[in-house]
Design a protein around this nucleic acid. Structure first.
Length: 691
DNA sequence: TATGCGTAGT
């Protein structure tokens, strides 16, 4: 008997150890190892299953978690709570709620989850009702979840009231209250609160850094980052992303290189920074160097290839991915849609087994961009958990096929609308020549208590411009001043157009001069404005000014323009960009243009030559060699060089493969002399490929 | 408290 008990005890002890191991593996992202251990275990108990579910959840494999949950022999309260928490964690809140309703018994933890469900849905009143109704003594977590809910909806005053009422506050409560300020851009109040905090930890400092980054105050962010007593990996990643987002990629990289303990998130953040900066090769290098990858790493990289138009590379990577992840698949789906490759888009969409709301929305947006609202509507009807984006996408789709009545019907069918819904409606009216309706909507929106954003202002100002409504336009300008959106480029450009179309070119010029930063559209708006008001000479002068200034920066904008084209870009467009890249010495974008161009003109020598010359200019001789090789490999056809001159009314033609004739021999001899003189100068790089 | 995929706008 004693012996038997001992054996049982050892077994239990062993299982206990293995369960803990599964949890640990899950936490550190080693999901495959966790699965391996789980499947090798001969004896399992309920905790084993719960640990495995939790491990799946932590690695974004929510469907595997659910599969295990459905098939486990016995479930306890923790199994239910873990599964619900997993759904909440991966934003599948409706599935979380369905489980909550189904569960046989609930504890304090389940209630807290439930409240967080309602706060996540934005239904704060229901959450508050539960909060007040809770039958047991409310613990700190209860208060915290409610404060978080208020904070997420920007209801800072109510959050603060609750915070002040709390009988007991832990450091998490202080941080949650702080995050109400920092997450809502209230950095003055946030700083004040931070200074008076009774309890502070590294999270508090990180929140401050993140808050400053959000409002674009990089200096203060850096100041707090440097002052953080014991920065953790989150502090570093937050700062790194802040730098990356402001285009300071070199500084971001420096920080990354300084990091002592890089985790997978740090690597992902750095890869993402390169991807956003079109540096796909550097991103790929990091991707292959990183010690282990999670679904974020794969998705970022796949999206990166989509970003530079290398769809086949993206697809290859998706195929290589050791497990299917919806985000990665959706990135691919979105790539095919952006490039109008609808057949492949459908194929990917069908491959996705458990579709989430983002994936559905992407597909609906795809059809609506193609003008196929019939198909979009079918999906819309088929879809279960629609969110705001779903509805907004439908509004935009109908507006684009000029069916404003349908668009309005969708709009009116919405229980909750956000600022994008209104902007979509206003834009719809605007694009369909219904500027009055656009302005009316602007008024109605304010009436319903929604705050217009930069986009609302930009569209509404356009409506004023269309109507040449200078009075309303000026009022709108006033509102812009008060709102703090004056320095937004969209708004600034819209103001330029508005004043120009209302006949006040002086005002337009003043707005232009006051902008911190101008882009190609600002210039165009002003130039058009001058022309429109009869100042042709000034318009031409401005155009010349524009060409001579700040062109290098406009190159990337030109790329964005091409990406945003309603039609698929053709060889002409990519070719023009390639030439522009060469002229501006932008190898990074040049490579993208050349890659795209090779799809249309795989054997055109001049494209290869242009690229190789750019690489030579940049001193990348390895790349030059590669380009030369691929030119040979694709057997690029070399157009025979040809040139002609007219001497005394007679045309003389020279072709590189012309049979030798007396006069050509002389020409070649002269040419040889010239070539040798040139190669002694410092322009070898331009000849290196053609030689 | 940090990283990935979807909607609007000059």
């Amino acid at each position: 008997m004693k012996q038997n008990l001992k054996v049982i005890g050892e077994h239990t002890n062993h299982i206990f150890k293995q369960n803990t191991q599964i949890t640990q593996l899950g936490k550190s992202g080693q999901i495959h190892e966790a699965v391996k251990l789980f499947s090798e275990m001969t004896r399992k108990n309920t905790v084993t299953y719960n640990s495995m579910i939790s491990a799946f959840n932590k690695n974004g494999k929510i469907n595997d978690a659910r599969h295990l949950f459905d098939n486990m022999p016995r479930r306890n309260l923790v199994s239910w709570n873990t599964m619900i928490a997993g759904y909440l964690h991966s934003d599948r809140i409706d599935e979380a709620y369905r489980l909550f309703v189904k569960m046989p018994k609930r504890d304090r933890f389940s209630w807290t989850l439930m409240i967080s469900y309602f706060t996540r849905k934005g239904e704060l009143e229901k959450a508050r009702e539960l909060f007040d109704l809770f039958p047991h003594k409310r613990d700190v977590a209860f208060w915290n979840v409610m404060i978080r809910g208020y904070g997420e909806k920007g209801r800072i005053v109510e959050a603060r009231r609750l915070f002040d009422e709390m009988p007991l506050r832990v450091v998490v409560s202080w941080n949650l209250m702080l995050s109400c300020y920092t997450r809502n851009g209230e950095m003055r109040l946030g700083r004040e609160f931070f200074e008076g905090m009774a309890l502070r930890d590294v999270v508090s400092w990180n929140l401050m850094v993140d808050g400053f980054i959000e409002v674009g105050d990089l200096d203060s962010a850096w100041e707090y980052f440097e002052k953080t007593p014991h920065p953790n990996v989150v502090s570093w990643v937050t700062m790194l992303c802040g730098l990356a987002r402001s285009g300071k990629i070199l500084e971001a990289r420096r920080l990354f290189d300084q990091m002592q303990n890089k985790n997978v998130v740090s690597w992902n953040a750095m890869i993402s920074a390169y991807v956003k900066d079109y540096q796909i090769e550097e991103a790929a290098r990091l991707f292959s160097d990183m010690p282990n990858r999670d679904s974020f790493s794969w998705t970022t990289m796949i999206d990166g290839y989509v970003h530079v138009g290398q769809l086949d590379k993206a697809r290859e990577l998706l195929n290589q991915m050791p497990y299917k992840d919806i985000a990665a698949q959706t990135a691919m789906l979105s790539g095919y849609i952006k490039n109008k490759r609808m057949d492949e888009a459908c194929q990917v969409f069908n491959e996705i087994a458990a579709r989430d709301v983002v994936c559905w929305n992407t597909m609906i947006a795809g059809y609506s961009q193609m003008g196929r609202m019939d198909k979009a509507l079918n999906l819309f009807k088929e879809m279960k958990d629609k969110d705001l984006v779903t509805w907004n996408t439908m509004i935009i789709g109908y507006a684009q096929i000029r069916e404003m009545e349908e668009a309005v019907k969708i709009f009116n069918g919405m229980k909750i609308k956000n600022v994008v819904s209104w902007n979509s409606l206003i834009t719809g009216f605007l694009q369909n020549g219904l500027s009055m309706d656009a302005l009316t909507s602007f008024k109605l929106m304010a009436h319903e208590g929604l705050t217009p954003d930069h986009s609302t202002f930009a569209c509404s100002l356009s409506a004023c411009a269309n109507l040449a409504a200078s009075q309303v336009g000026k009022q709108m300008h006033n509102k812009v001043l008060k709102s703090g959106h004056l320095n937004d480029l969209f708004v600034g450009n819209a103001l330029i157009t508005m004043y120009a179309k209302c006949g006040c070119i002086l005002c337009a010029q003043l707005i232009f001069d006051d902008l911190d930063e101008v882009d190609v559209i600002s210039w165009n708006s002003l130039i058009t404005g001058y022309a429109l008001n009869g100042y042709g000479k000034q318009a031409v002068q401005l155009f010349q000014q524009m060409v001579s200034k700040g062109r290098a920066g406009m190159l990337s904008e030109a790329f964005e323009v091409v990406r945003g084209l309603k039609i698929r870009a053709n060889a002409g467009i990519w070719g023009a960009l390639l030439v522009a890249c060469k002229a501006r010495g932008n190898l990074k974008l040049g490579k993208i243009a050349a890659e795209q161009l090779s799809e249309f003109e795989p054997r055109k020598t001049s494209n290869f030559v242009l690229l190789a010359n750019m690489q030579a200019d940049a001193g990348s001789w390895d790349e030059v060699e590669n380009t030369r090789l691929s030119m040979k490999y694709t057997e690029a056809e070399k157009q025979p060089g040809c040139s002609w001159i007219e001497v005394r009314h007679q045309l003389h033609c020279f072709q590189s493969n012309m049979p030798m004739q007396p006069e050509t021999a002389e020409v070649y001899s002269n040419l040889k002399t010239l070539t040798s003189q040139i190669s002694n100068l410092d322009c070898v790089s331009n000849l290196i490929v053609s030689a």
